[in-house]
Design a protein around this nucleic acid. Structure first.
Length: 223
DNA sequence: AATGGAGGCAACCGCACAGCG
DNA sequence: ACGCTGTGCGGTTGCCTCCAT
């Protein structure tokens, strides 16, 4: 079959600046989309997927490259906690960042950091900010605790003391059925404050609902 | 200076889904 | 209803660079 031969001739690996230029010019002239046509007519010996990926992750205008800011990093962490590995959704909330970049950033920087989470060393400014904004404090044993407003010391809710390496394994974290719908939702206390940044569209995309309310019984979706 | 390991990141792969004939 | 094509997404791979020895 001719198609297979064509596919076998396609180039793989890193893109050269000349190839970038050709792709950029082609897309600027003919517009985005129809990557099969781009692949065939641009003269690039690259597959449609390769062209699309290169454009989307590198050549597209307004791509922001370089270090993630503290805010971006914070947002990724919290969005991931709520949405799981929904990289495109998370990237959608970060102007100029691509899903691939967010995914890579998570896998290289934040995933490791998360696995160090036992005893939650609050070493960065953003960690400290989040701690303050969510009313959390570090207890003497190094665990993170939340004080319920107006409660006595005895009534303090120890939220994050379960963050031992062992308990992390047990957290319900099924992407297909996000923890948002379980009473054991790990974000139940500490990420409540984060809900307002998720607009209806994101919530609908992620969970098929525009949200719900958090009660003593857990998350009650508005259906 | 050489080398081996670890980390970072660009790109590929496979699967799923939507649109169309 | 079905198959084909194009596109999008998440997981994974492999190359390159940096750093420690």
């Amino acid at each position: 079959m001719e198609g297979k031969e064509v596919m076998a001739r396609l180039k793989k690996g890193f893109w050269k600046p000349e190839e970038d230029l050709i792709l950029k010019k082609y897309v600027e002239t003919h517009g985005e989309g129809n990557w099969t046509a781009v692949s065939k007519k641009s003269g690039l010996q690259r597959g449609p997927k390769s062209c699309r990926l290169r454009w989307k992750n590198y050549l597209r205008p307004n791509i922001k490259r370089g270090m993630m800011s503290e805010d971006e990093r914070d947002l990724i962490i919290r969005m991931h906690k709520l949405l799981g590995n929904r990289w495109s959704l998370i990237a959608g909330r970060l102007p100029g960042r691509t899903d691939n970049e967010v995914k890579n950033y998570w896998n290289t920087h934040l995933n490791k950091r998360a696995s160090r989470r036992p005893n939650m060393n609050l070493d960065s400014e953003s960690d400290k900010k989040h701690q303050l904004s969510s009313g959390l404090h570090i207890a003497e044993d190094g665990n993170l605790e939340k004080k319920t407003a107006g409660s006595s010391i005895e009534e303090e809710v120890n939220v994050v003391s379960e963050f031992s390496a062992e308990n992390l394994k047990n957290i319900d974290y099924d992407i297909n059925f996000p923890s948002i719908f379980t009473n054991r939702a790990p974000f139940f206390y500490e990420d409540e404050i984060f809900m307002p940044i998720l607009d209806d569209f994101v919530l609908f995309e992620a969970f098929g609902t525009n949200g719900g309310e958090i009660t003593g019984e857990g998350f009650q979706p508005l259906l």
